[in-house]
Nucleic acid binder design. Structure first.
Lengths: 172, 172
DNA sequence: GAGCAATAATTGGTGACGTCAATAGTTGTT
DNA sequence: AACAACTATTGACGTCACCAATTATTGCTC
């Protein structure tokens, strides 16, 4: 049950052995696997998203945090306090996920939950001084991650990419 | 006869990539959450990768497959047979994941495992006629997914984005 | 002003996913 | 003949996205 829920484990039955096999393919610019998959921008985004997440997480590994915690911290750094509901919608994480993330950050002393004066259901998450210090200490290393990821691009191309991605992600 | 093997180097054709294709978004967004997170291209990629994967999976939901199965099928469509090891390195999935994916596809009758005549350790995964038919039937719908994702961009901008992402993803 | 729908935070469960460790069978090398 | 490297495979572990249900609180409405 490691992978698929849509099927049980399948044991390959006896297959007819044919001497026919794959035909060697010249590796020109029209590589078939290129046409098949990497021609799709959506799939490219999915793929690079995975790689980006991995890079971030390995970078954060020593600090004991993960990308999602880091996202919360950086959002709070620019917001000076945010409702958990706000974190959920802004960062795109499930409300239940926010609970665990803020729990972790609180345990590490990087954030605090304060009661909202307007609505006693809500809680306001704010950065502590320790949280701010952590962000200052990792700011430069964080940039290095993106720098590494976008190594093949020069400065102008990176700005172009950034602008394009912003347009795509900011769609309401 | 030697199999095509694994291509280790691919050089994307040169494209004129300038920022003229994109209208830079006026950072009028004094929005603090802009400064905090979306200023980071790496995080943008991570986020859009998630959204892209979700879109693909919901699109594939009715067919009983998921994005990873679809990736295998599309790769096979352009390769005319591939070793599982090849699928693993090309698609970036763990070899153990490939096993489950091919199991599922085989159970659905979309692929077959054939013994490699060159190496009895390897197995060659090939598309069946059913698999090909599935790809033909979903080809247009698949394009609609990427179309939807990139809705805010015009044609020129999409080509620019595609070229930039290709450069980033093809790094060894 | 008393019910009632909506909301914020929370808990729990489920399936999908990435990663690593280990194994059996096979190949190439020495 | 022995040994290292490789292929497919199984298994386990932790993370993550998604959904349902609960509790406390708010706003609406009749």
């Amino acid at each position: 049950m490691s992978h698929a829920g849509i099927c049980t484990s399948y044991r390959p039955r006896e297959l007819a052995i044919t001497s026919q096999h794959v035909t060697p393919k010249p590796m020109d610019a029209e590589e078939p696997w290129m046409r098949g998959l990497h021609a799709d921008t959506g799939y490219l985004l999915y793929r690079l998203g995975l790689r980006s997440g991995q890079l971030f997480n390995t970078f954060l590994q020593e600090s004991g945090l993960r990308l999602r915690h880091y996202a919360v911290l950086r959002y709070l750094a620019g917001a000076e306090g945010a409702l958990q509901r706000e974190l959920s919608t802004r960062l795109g994480y499930d409300p239940s996920a926010i609970v665990g993330l803020v729990d972790d950050l609180e345990r590490l002393g990087m954030t605090e939950r304060r009661p909202s004066p307007d609505d006693r259901r809500s809680k306001i998450v704010v950065l502590t001084e320790d949280g701010r210090a952590f962000l200052r200490g990792t700011d430069e290393a964080g940039r290095r991650v993106t720098n590494d990821l976008l190594a093949p691009l020069d400065t102008a191309e990176r700005e172009t990419l950034q602008a394009l991605l912003l347009r795509v992600v900011d769609r309401p």
